[in-house]
Design a protein around this nucleic acid. Sequence first.
DNA 1: GCAATCGATTGCATTTTGCAATCATTTGGA
DNA 2: TCCAAATGATTGCAAAATGCAATCGATTGC
Lengths: 142, 142
Amino acid sequence: MTSSPFRSSCPINLGLEVFGDKWTLLIIRDMMFAGKRHFREFLTSDEGISTNILADRLAMLTRVGIVTRAGDPSHRLKAIYSLTEKGIQLLPVIAQISRWSRSHMPVDPTLAITGEARDRAGPDAVEAQMVALRAMHLGTGS
Amino acid sequence: MTSSPFRSSCPINLGLEVFGDKWTLLIIRDMMFAGKRHFREFLTSDEGISTNILADRLAMLTRVGIVTRAGDPSHRLKAIYSLTEKGIQLLPVIAQISRWSRSHMPVDPTLAITGEARDRAGPDAVEAQMVALRAMHLGTGS
DNA sequence: GCAATCGATTGCATTTTGCAATCATTTGGA
DNA sequence: TCCAAATGATTGCAAAATGCAATCGATTGC
């Protein structure tokens, strides 16, 4: 009766149970680097996510508190997805994946520019970008 | 005829195409933190990977150059799996996932100790552990 | 010999994914 | 007012991946 929904409570495993698939982090990436906030926008990325997978992942991300969903004040049909602090703190994970791939995989040089600049700017660059994401996705603050 | 085997050449995506699943990084984790090198050892982890998935992932990791396979000199049947430099450099990714989970998921405190100690020790701790992994997995060096 | 152990494969039911078509609702313009 | 376009999804269905147990041939240790 008291069985956990997780395979184990290891930190690595718990992360993988949330974003250990081929699509979830790409959605977060698009919110962070491409400023995407609407359902249709995520469909335009190069990898070509399909609508059912996207809907499923957005619902999951909302359920686990990485993303929030709100109605667009100007278009009643439109939904606006925002990152929570929990989601913004995935940036260091994504930055580290980027670093590994740029060292070991055949990345497109154009798509590597953002990550290279972040690395050149030093360790504070990730923090700075998280500050910017908070301004965009969390309340305006005073 | 010249189509890429990848969905895109984005750094984030290329990383996910290699380790974007629920099992691959757990195998790497076990090699890094539990010192596991033999097929049977990986089967004893809490998450309970099955033999066909394990065989599939070990073959894939070998194929992409994250792991090498060698025969055990003392037991002809035994295979010894080692991390390559490409594999060792996944430690920063794993450390970052651990950090996120320890902040945002219900991790087992006992299993969090290693990561907490690494964080307390400062940024050099990851580098130091990579040095140790090189000593264990790459040639002895002179 | 012979049981135990090695890495790995097979068979099969279940689940997840990929892909296209479609949905009901709302918006914007004529 | 009407109607096409756009919104966030859902559905149907084939294909692929996964989970699980049984099993494989080869080798080791006794």
